[in-house]
Every structure is written in structure tokens, then in C-alpha cells.
């Protein structure tokens, strides 16, 4: 049972720690790092509160929302997290180029305020969503405990699980320090974009099966495009981790591929627009 506690806690914390670890490392590069980290820490605290509130709902102690409203709320949270991730990457890309001059000119301040709110919300959702599941799991397991030995093993395992996930956080901070910023940013930017695609795909999956299932959509929407479950099933340990972090699906249906195409299409358009604006702006500033 204790091995299971370690595994579940580590697995459920990975996603949140990936987001927070990357944001934390990015903040360090900014001249206004202190303000950024304060917003991030605030988001983490809000995330714990959100996790507790959601857990109360899952346990059935509190019913703030009915089942339908709850699933809309989940879809909203997931989509918003995906949008915030894309926006965050967009913002950081822009910064790599223009940060100093803009900061000096004082143009950055108002834009920054809006983005700090984004950092806050993203951290809160990242912790709140997966955290609520961890809270339910730990609370349920906690109720099974009998005797002191049980308690110490339980808390020990939970701490080990969190420690394993925290190693990811540390690895990111060390990476930020020792790898060149350009490469670190490039790699983490892709990690976040993939995570965003996974969140958006999960959101749209819920939309399809919970809210669109009453409608008769054309049959091809549901047809399986390929079956790679023999190669790497998304129910396996590696497969499900890839599903959580990078939207891997071993048996995608047409809907899944449309959703992913929409996500990456929007990302590509946004970034191309950004690049074009940057090249247009360059001769002027030069």
C-alpha cells in the first residue's frame, strides 16, 4: 500500500511541478523576478485551496455544483490552463527579444500586470486540478490507517512521493542554470506547448462524451484512425505519462486529431504572426 502511495503522489504531482518548475525558472531570468515569484507563490497557495475545495466536492461532503455544472467547470479549467500556457509561451518568446528596451521605456509594466495574473491562475489550476485527486486519494487512504506504525509509513510514503516529483522541479532549476538560456527556453517552451495540447485534448474529450453525446454527430467523428496500443498503450505507465504530458493517444479517433490540429494550428498562426511582427519591427528599432 505504501508503494502505491509513493507512486500516486509522484504521478499526480508531476504535471503541476512541471508547470511551476518551468515558470519558476523563467521568472529567474526576468529583472522583475521577485514580483513574478510572489505571484507564482500566490498561485500555488490558491491552488491548494482550490484542490481542497474540489476534493470536498469529490468526496461528497459539499455540493457546490451539480454533475453537469461540475463537468463544465472542469472543461473550463482545462481549456483555460491550455490557453494560459500558450499565452505564457507567447509572452516569454516576445521577451527574449524586447525585454530590456521595453522595460526601460516603461511600456512593459501594464502588460506585465496582466501576465502576472496569468501566472497566478495557471499555477492555481495546475495544483488545484491534479491536487484535488491526490487529496481524495490520500484522505481515503488516511481513513484506513490503524496504529502509529501505519501513520508514520503513510506520511513517510507521501513525502517520498512528493520528493520524487520535486526532483523534477530541481532538475529544471539546475537545467536553467547550467544549460544555455536559449536551449533551456527552447526545450521548456515545447514541453509546455505539449502539455497545453494534452490539457486541451482532455477538455475536448470531456466535451464530446459528456455534453455532445446526446447529439447524433456523424459517425466518422468517432472512428478510430489508428491503433498503436500494441506498440505503446496509453494505459501503460509510460503511455499514460505521455498522455498526461504530451496528449499521446494509442487509439485516437477523428475528433482527437481534429482537436489537436486546431490547437497546433492556432499555436502556429499566433507564433508566425509574432515572428512577422518582430521582423517588421526590427528595421525600425535598428
Amino acid at each position: 500500500m505504501m508503494g502505491q502511495v509513493i507512486f500516486i503522489v509522484a504521478r499526480e504531482s508531476v504535471e503541476a511541478l512541471l508547470v511551476i518548475g518551468i515558470l519558476w525558472a523563467w521568472m529567474a531570468r526576468r529583472p522583475d523576478a521577485r514580483a513574478g515569484r510572489a505571484w507564482l507563490l500566490g498561485g500555488i497557495a490558491a491552488g491548494f485551496a482550490l484542490a481542497a475545495a474540489l476534493a470536498l466536492m469529490l468526496v461528497g461532503v459539499a455540493t457546490f455544483l451539480g454533475a453537469t455544472a461540475r463537468s463544465w467547470f472542469e472543461i473550463g479549467m482545462l481549456s483555460m490552463a491550455a490557453a494560459l500556457i500558450v499565452q505564457m509561451v507567447f509572452w516569454m518568446r516576445k521577451h527574449g527579444r524586447t525585454l530590456k528596451t521595453e522595460l526601460e521605456a516603461g511600456l512593459e509594466r501594464s502588460v506585465a500586470a496582466a501576465n502576472w495574473l496569468g501566472v497566478f491562475a495557471l499555477a492555481a489550476i495546475a495544483i488545484g486540478r491534479e491536487g484535488s485527486e491526490t487529496v481524495v486519494f490520500l484522505y481515503g487512504s488516511f481513513l484506513q490507517l490503524q496504529g502509529l506504525a501505519d501513520y508514520s509509513a503513510f506520511f513517510g510514503s507521501a513525502a517520498v512521493g512528493l520528493g520524487i516529483a520535486l526532483m523534477l522541479f530541481w532538475a529544471l532549476q539546475i537545467g536553467a542554470r547550467f544549460v544555455s538560456w536559449k536551449w533551456f527556453f527552447r526545450v521548456t517552451e515545447w514541453m509546455l506547448l505539449f502539455l497545453g495540447s494534452a490539457l486541451f485534448l482532455t477538455a475536448m474529450g470531456k466535451l464530446l462524451s459528456k455534453h455532445l453525446s446526446a447529439y447524433d454527430l456523424p459517425g466518422w467523428i468517432y472512428s478510430t484512425v489508428w491503433d498503436a496500443s500494441g506498440f505503446l498503450s496509453d494505459s501503460s505507465m509510460l503511455g499514460s505519462l505521455l498522455a498526461t504530458l504530451a496528449a499521446y493517444r494509442s487509439q485516437p479517433i477523428v475528433w482527437d486529431l481534429l482537436v489537436l490540429a486546431l490547437y497546433w494550428g492556432v499555436v502556429a498562426l499566433l507564433f508566425r504572426h509574432q515572428d512577422r511582427k518582430a521582423t517588421r519591427a526590427r528595421p525600425v528599432t535598428a
Binding site: V136, G205, G239, S240, R249
Partner: peptide
């Protein structure tokens, strides 16, 4: 507690 899950069926539900 349990969490019924299936990536392939697009389902996920935490059940106390």
C-alpha cells in the same frame, strides 16, 4: 477511493 479511468474511452472519474 478509486479513480475510474480510460484514455481510450476518454473517461476519468474520481470515486470516493
Amino acid at each position: 477511493p478509486s479513480e475510474f479511468e480510460s484514455n481510450q474511452l476518454r473517461l476519468e472519474e474520481v470515486l470516493f
